[in-house]
């Protein structure tokens, strides 16, 4: 693998391999909590924090963790950081904590984090892993913000909780319903396919069904690795 600069690694996560729009990893949160923009920012930043910390720790420990038990070890490290985030959020951002609900704790099984640990942090030094975590995390946050902006403006006629027309006018309920989440995400993914004008994502890239291991990683990991070589 040729050496990439820190900036390239960062940019890679933010744009070229945006976890939500390009890799289609970790799809539960982007669909579930994007009914309002403030939720999206909270969730995005919480995930970014966990991703950066777990990437750094896993990368620092990459020679210590035996290969056979790496997945349980990674999950334990990630779960530790998620617990930290949820305790801090419970204490200082109680309303956000309530509206994110169980999805905050489900960051543990967010495939982006385990995926990056397996694909990047366990093979690279600490500083590039930090950059990768930050890029991927911010890319995830940006994706959440875009989806939630569309859903909140169309569905609630408001943005970050500020209502445009007062409470008398209601928006299109469809975009707040679960169905709207799938719809908006589908449209945005299609848009990204047009913008990047690359081959549309292969059907078997469908994502994180495979995250627990590189061998099982539904195809996207293998493809990226093949490209890297």
């Amino acid at each position: 693998m040729e050496k990439k600069s820190i900036w390239q690694i960062f940019r890679n996560g933010l744009i070229d391999e945006n976890p939500t729009f390009r890799l289609l990893l970790g799809m539960c949160a982007p669909l579930a909590i994007t009914t309002s923009a403030s939720n999206a920012i909270g969730m995005g930043l919480a995930t970014t924090f966990v991703l950066v910390c777990s990437n750094a720790v896993i990368s620092a420990l990459r020679r210590v963790i035996p290969k056979e038990v790496r997945l349980p070890a990674f999950i334990t490290i990630i779960a530790g950081f998620v617990t930290i985030v949820s305790l801090v959020m419970q204490r200082y951002f109680a309303s956000l904590y309530d509206s994110l609900g169980v999805f905050l704790e489900l960051i543990v099984v967010n495939c982006i984090i385990l995926g990056r640990a397996e694909m990047f942090a366990s093979k690279n030094k600490v500083i590039p892993s930090l950059a990768d975590g930050l890029g991927m995390g911010l890319g995830f946050t940006a994706a959440l913000l875009i989806i939630s902006t569309i859903r909140e403006i169309l569905g609630n006629l408001s943005w970050f909780g500020f209502s445009f027309f007062g409470d008398d006018v209601s928006g299109m309920l469809f975009f707040i319903l679960p169905a709207g989440a799938f719809f908006v995400l589908g449209m945005l993914t299609a848009l990204m396919n047009v913008i990047f004008a690359k081959k549309p994502a292969k059907k078997n890239d469908a994502g994180c069904a495979g995250c627990p291991g590189a061998s099982a990683c539904g195809g996207s990991c293998d493809r990226k690795e093949a490209e890297a070589k």
């Binding site: 799938f182 719809f183 995400l185 589908g186 993914t189 299609a190 059907k203």
Partner: peptide, 23 residues
């Protein structure tokens, strides 16, 4: 399927309609 929608996007749209029926 239109080129841009091939693969994941159309699956998401289909999921949207399925979700609507469950609503």
């Amino acid at each position: 399927i239109p080129k841009a929608f091939q693969g994941m996007p159309i699956a998401l749209i289909a999921a949207s309609i399925t979700a609507l029926s469950f609503a």
